[in-house]
Design a binder for these strands. Sequence first.
DNA 1: CGCAGCACTGCTATCAGTGCTGCGGTGCTATAGT
Length: 489
Amino acid sequence: MDKLKPFLEKHFGHTTFKEGQRQIIEAVINGEDVFAMLATGSGKSLCYQFPALWKKGTAIIVSPLLSLMENQVQELKQSGIRQAAAYNSFLSPPEKEHILRHLADYKIVYISPESLQHPEVASRLEKLNVSLLAVDEAHCISQWGHEFRTDYLRIKEIRRLAGNPPCIALTATASADAKKDIIEKLELTNPLVHCDSVDRPNIYIDVRKKKNEEEKRETLREECSRLPLPGMIYVNSRLKAEELAAFIREENGLKTSAYHGGMSNEDRRLVQQQFLNDEIDVICCTNAFGMGINKPNIRFVIHYHYSKDMESFMQEIGRAGRDGRQSLSLVLYDAADGMLPRRMLEHEFPSEEEIRMVSHDPDRPEWTTSRFLLERYGLEEVHARFLQFYIHKWYQSSRTQPLEDFISSVIQRRMEWKLQKLKQKEYWLHQKDRCRRTALLEVFDEHNKNIVTPCCDVCGEYTMHVYQQRKERESELSWEERLKWILHQ
DNA sequence: CGCAGCACTGCTATCAGTGCTGCGGTGCTATAGT
């Protein structure tokens, strides 16, 4: 007798499981660890929400963005699941205290990796019956955990503290390397591994080398005048995002907006909402834009600057064509583009001078805080947290080498790793004799490529059909929209 | 694999070349002050 289905219908209103869901849910219920790579829209959340409600105790869900947590809790509450909360800095101190005191009354609690590390939180979890620990958008562990948000690498410690509950890692895109890294960093034991294909057959992949920035802009202007809308343009600086938004607005008469981390929360929310409502034709953004965006009709993603590795690229182009209709990924690059990612890579780490200073300071307490490092040495915040994390790691280790050497070797290893990822990306851009899709999928350990037409610039030209769509769209418009469009021209 | 902006230099032009420096992305949190 199948008990899962009635439960599914009662709490989530579905009559059947989607591909893969059932197996994952059963594994979590049985106390197994899971690594799941599921395509967007295939019901990732259900994989932890179902077991969370099914099992006794409280499920802890680690989520990277406050906005994602808020959305999830809101959705749960709307579908009648009220014992859900997000524990984060949006809450006032009394509200936080209230949630912590009554943790056991909740079935699902969302939390950031940073908040998870708070001593009050950790000590509460120690006494709590944690039904499962889920890490949503788990690729963040591998993408952010080593340098930018090191608390991602400390999740396993809290997991141990909470009595080793079953752990489920969920993501839409993780390369073969990232998958290995995630499993290792979370200490998943014999996990059930479920991987959907990351291939997106309705996205045509195009790469074009340009002589210089001027040529890139020319191409941008041309493409924005004929590609179906809406679309996205990725750049690697905030200033450039603003600049290109203005450029396309002026040159093409399109509704554009920039989006980057330097904007206020209100502006970001507004722009995002306008884009989702089809009130913006082209959004020019840094990598701040994307996570949690589920807009079905994005027709193109142009990379005005290329992303730093293959999996960021996959994530970024994967935002196009969620509705299944023909879409386009276009990368424009020139010889000077390699400079910035290398500079940024170096800038991610503290300098040798800073490491020496910190390592040899006799006044530095053993369990130093990032705040201490920040104030005493005037380090950048990210560098201070990076150092704090690896200093602690050194104290936990056998300390066979001096602290300075330990940190330097970590940095060297990570730099080499990241540089190799960047080179892999550049190799992929430059090579002109292999199918781009085949080469892209190999990074994700997929070797049985489907025959896709149109596929990519190497397999064959494909432009006319795509451009045709814009014309079709324009003739579908109402007279008001058409008038607006004509006035723009 | 750059580029803009600045100070400096040589030696007297309000310049022309050189060389240095800074820039550049992702988000959480806590806390002080309106």
